[in-house]
């Protein structure tokens, strides 16, 4: 391999940016990316006596994901599957007396949970509207895509860690003679 690498090295410019090629690849891949996704979440809100749930991988709905609704005592209240738009709705159970935990199993280790509080389930009139507004704000936060700032922060942190490791190693080497 060495020999091959040596022959490859001949006749090539040495001043190529080490990360340039991979960085270009990353940018191309990001540019062609159809969506930003991979977190899994289930979100639920209550409106006019119905609990609406929405399950998603960011901006792609979870098709046919298993939904299980349990009460405070971990008793299964009902089960179902999300539709093509990642939705699954059910009427507020008549005998509800605790918060409801909604569990999503989107297969392959993708799971998520969301709690609908008893006050949300019981709210009426203005209070219900206020609860709904709060729920929608939470939904927007959940749906937020990873920003370029987050990506840049991650890459910067990786380079910082590697730089520090390299620096510590050099100091140790110097210290040990």
């Amino acid at each position: 391999m060495r020999k091959y690498l040596m022959t490859q090295k001949k006749g090539q410019k040495k001043d190529l940016l080490p990360g340039g090629t991979l960085l270009a690849l990353i940018l191309i891949l990001l540019g062609s990316s159809p969506a930003w996704a991979h977190k899994v979440y289930v979100f639920a809100w209550v409106e006019k006596g119905t609990v609406y749930t929405e399950s998603s991988f960011g901006d792609q709905p979870v098709h046919g994901g298993a939904i299980e609704v349990v009460d405070r005592d971990n008793q299964v209240v009902l089960q179902g599957k999300t539709d093509d738009r990642g939705k699954f709705n059910f009427p507020v159970p008549v005998a509800v007396n605790s918060d409801l935990l909604i569990k999503l199993d989107a297969t392959m280790g993708h799971q998520a949970r969301w709690t609908v509080t008893l006050s949300e389930l019981m709210a009426e009139g203005d209070e219900a509207r206020q609860q709904l507004d709060e729920a929608m704000t939470k939904k927007e936060t959940l749906e937020a895509k990873p920003s370029m700032a987050a990506v840049a922060t991650g890459i910067a942190v990786i380079f910082l860690i590697c730089g520090l490791a390299s620096l510590i190693h050099k100091k140790r080497k110097k210290h040990n003679g």
Binding site: G19, L29, L30, S32, W36, Q60, H63, G64, I155
Partner: peptide
Amino acid sequence: AILSSAFFVASLIHVNLGPS
């Protein structure tokens, strides 16, 4: 650092298949 960064961003490129 370069390869760790490449791995870090690679999972943002996804394909939707079935329920997952």
